[in-house]
């Protein structure tokens, strides 16, 4: 697809916010962001929520230092647990539960930072198709981020005092800067006095990702998000999955043009890069694409009498 075609007539249709309709996906994303960051008064006071719900991990990348956050960030909690030298049963179990039930539906429907990227991509600037020779290897960077910044460094890179730091949160996470850093610094003069080079670095990372989001669809989800990397492992096995009826498919390619993650929908609909946003389903002219929960209707089933 030429760069000038994408965003103008990319097959996404009015179901996804073009024209006057707000899509189901957008409604769910907005509700999710509002619920996960429901402590609205925190933004005004410049304080974070300290209630008991913070014992629970939310399924999305949402900084627990965001003034509105009602739950704990699973990636932050994972780093803290690993840094404490204990096997993170609770956090890992929570992540596995979200993963096996939903897969990357979390990314496509629930993640507030995914919503931010989607909204920025709607800004009418020329869109870039990242060449496959760069895009495909770059998709593996998020697994490196997960392994190095979230797991290895918190486990092994401890200070002389035995204190480990959340390396992904400290040096990379744009959601923490956007949801936590900027609102807290804006509302707290004392925190403003403490700003230094680290804050400048994190803002620069955030700005780079936000600007990229105007030109490339979901760049953070594609290349950097460790939580997306974790959930991607579960996409092929999760209870929620996408389904392609090959008899109904006419090979028009609308699904692939609409996909924000450039998934080859007709070849690998439940691949690790699919964020289950449902855009392919919405644009399919023959309704060949659907989603299902707890079923495996497109798999080889044993014939009667066989095991």
């Amino acid at each position: 697809m030429r760069n000038d075609e994408r965003g103008k007539n990319d097959g996404r249709g009015s179901h996804y916010g073009y024209g006057n309709k707000i899509s189901f996906q957008r409604v769910v994303q907005l509700l999710s962001a509002a619920v996960i960051n429901g402590y609205a008064i925190g933004f005004a006071k410049g304080k974070i929520f300290t209630g008991k719900s913070k014992a629970f991990c939310v399924p999305v990348l949402n900084c627990y230092s965001c003034p509105g956050a009602l739950g704990a960030c699973p990636i932050g909690a994972l780093q803290a647990a690993l840094g404490g030298g204990r096997f993170p049963f609770y956090v890992l179990g929570s992540l596995m539960l979200f993963g096996i039930v939903l897969g990357r539906l979390v990314c496509g429907m629930l993640c507030p930072f995914g919503l931010v990227q989607d909204l920025l991509y709607k800004i009418p600037v020329p869109k870039w198709n990242v060449p496959k020779k760069f895009d495909e290897p770059a998709r593996y960077v998020k697994y490196v981020v997960l392994f190095v910044f979230v797991i290895v460094l918190p486990l092994f890179a401890v200070s002389e005092n035995g204190i480990s730091i959340p390396y992904f949160c400290k040096y990379v996470c744009p959601a923490g800067t956007l949801g936590g850093g900027l609102p807290l610094v804006a509302a707290n003069p004392r925190l403003r006095e403490l700003i230094g080079i680290l804050f400048d670095w994190k803002v620069a990372v955030l700005v780079l990702i936000l600007v990229s989001s105007m030109f490339v669809s979901r760049p953070f989800c594609r290349y950097l998000c460790p939580l997306g990397a974790f959930y991607s492992v579960f996409n092929r096995f999760s209870f929620y999955r996408m389904k392609l009826d090959e008899h109904e498919c006419i090979g028009c390619g609308r699904c692939e043009r609409a996909c924000p993650m450039d998934v080859e929908v007709t070849k690998d609909i439940n691949g690790p890069e699919c964020i289950r946003c449902g855009k392919c389903k919405a644009v399919c002219p023959t309704k060949a694409i659907s989603s299902e929960f707890c079923k495996q209707s497109n798999l080889v089933q044993p014939a009667r009498g066989e095991k």
Binding site: K54, A55, C63, Y64
Partner: peptide, 14 residues
């Protein structure tokens, strides 16, 4: 998890 989450994570906010 809660003990960590109810305190402002200075690393997280930069």
């Amino acid at each position: 998890v809660m003990q960590k989450a109810v305190r402002i994570c200075l690393e997280c906010v930069g």
